[in-house]
Amino acid sequence: MPKKQFRVVFKRERCKGCELCKAFCPKKLIEMDTQVNAKGYCPARMTDQTQCIGCQSCALVCPDGAIEIYEEE
């Protein structure tokens, strides 16, 4: 069976840069952007989508609904 591919989408303008998703990602795939968004926070972004295991930890701890996860078909 081929490995499932997931795509984590960050809503850049909703993110407040709290870094909870970064702290709880078991694969440590999330980093903070160096460019600020309109609110003035450094939003989270993915480093390597292909390594994502789709565990949803980031989306569960995100207090701002900034993360959506899709499975590639």
Binding site: F6, A59, I67, I69, Y70, E71
Partner: peptide, 8 residues
């Protein structure tokens, strides 16, 4: 793409 987690 099939959604796995979306904002409610």
């Amino acid at each position: 793409m099939k959604p796995v987690f979306q904002y409610t």
